[in-house]
């Protein structure tokens, strides 16, 4: 073997290693580094003190996102919790609060105001988890998390097996009555990426709902999440949910 031949072989091996390298799977750390290359991480902030249960957010969401108005499914909803002095907890969400809460009757019970310890409304929507179990269980790669943290569903690829609907601890997924594929809140992906806010945030008259970018330290939502007392739903599941609540109660499930 002369020197020229040796260099050719070494060069070929280096090129081959480089070519193989482009096809390898990403290690978790490398994937993480790629996620961080996005300078946006969408997060949601809900103030349960401000919510009055008018349900304008639910109405706006259904109309904005083409969810059949009278179908018993919705991407976002508002729950009412009435905690009584005798320890009973009443919770309901008639039609997902599409028409708001216009009656004090909760779970069929006429509640005497003097018996109420505390009562409040809790808007719910997809938590856009950092570790979304719904994505993990999808057998075909029809649902996925984008670089900016939003979990989306590919309607052309979903086979309708329903695993993701069962996997979500927050119950935010359902079958779309028209497309018969898994459906979920997208944080209005089409709006937030075009400089608008989500339909529910815009429709809320009381600023109970806000959306922000966790990677921008000057974002008012980020400032609240970082400096004030906020909680998330079902933290113990390890899904790293990204909808933060002010004034959450232990009775909220």
């Amino acid at each position: 073997m002369n020197r020229r031949k040796f260099l050719k072989i070494i060069g070929g091996m280096a090129a081959g290693a480089g070519a193989i390298g482009t096809f390898r799977f990403l290690a978790p750390g490398e994937a993480e580094a790629l996620i961080k290359s996005s300078n946006i991480r969408w997060a949601f902030l809900v103030d349960t003190y401000k919510c009055v249960g008018c349900g304008m957010c639910v109405k706006a969401c259904k109309l904005e996102n083409g969810i059949p108005y009278d179908a018993p499914v919705t991407r976002t909803w508002v729950e009412r919790y009435v905690i009584l002095k005798d320890g009973d907890v009443l919770a309901d969400t008639p039609k997902g609060a599409r028409d708001g809460f216009t009656s004090p009757v909760t779970e069929g019970r006429q509640v005497n105001p003097a018996d109420i310890d505390k009562a409040f409304f809790v808007p719910k929507l997809c938590n856009q988890c950092d570790k979304p179990p719904c994505v993990q269980v999808c057998p075909v790669g029809a649902t996925y998390r984008t670089a900016q943290g939003i979990v989306l569903v590919d309607r052309t690829w979903c086979i309708g097996c329903g695993y993701c609907i069962m996997a979500c601890p927050y119950g935010v997924r359902f079958f779309h009555p028209v497309y018969h594929t898994a459906e979920k809140c997208t944080f209005c992906y089409h709006r937030i990426n075009h400089g608008m806010t989500t339909a529910c945030v815009q429709a809320c008259p009381f600023d109970a709902r806000k959306i922000g970018n966790l990677k921008d330290p000057n974002d008012p939502v980020t400032k609240v999440i970082m400096t004030e007392r906020v909680a998330v739903l079902k933290d113990e599941y390890g899904t790293k949910p990204q909808v933060y609540y002010i004034g959450l109660d232990r009775n909220v499930r």
């Binding site: 799977f25 990403l26 978790p28 994937a31 993480e32 790629l34 996620i35 290359s37 996005s38 570790k131 979304p132 994505v135 993990q136 790669g141 029809a142 649902t143 996925y144 998390r145 984008t146 670089a147 989306l152 590919d154 309607r155 052309t156 690829w157 997208t186 992906y189 089409h190 990426n193 075009h194």
Partner: peptide, 18 residues
């Protein structure tokens, strides 16, 4: 971007939602 567990998808679908 989101790795093997969470990022397995058809990139073209992001455009549909956009």
């Amino acid at each position: 971007e989101s790795g093997y567990m969470y990022g397995w998808h058809n990139k073209a679908n992001e455009q549909f939602w956009l």
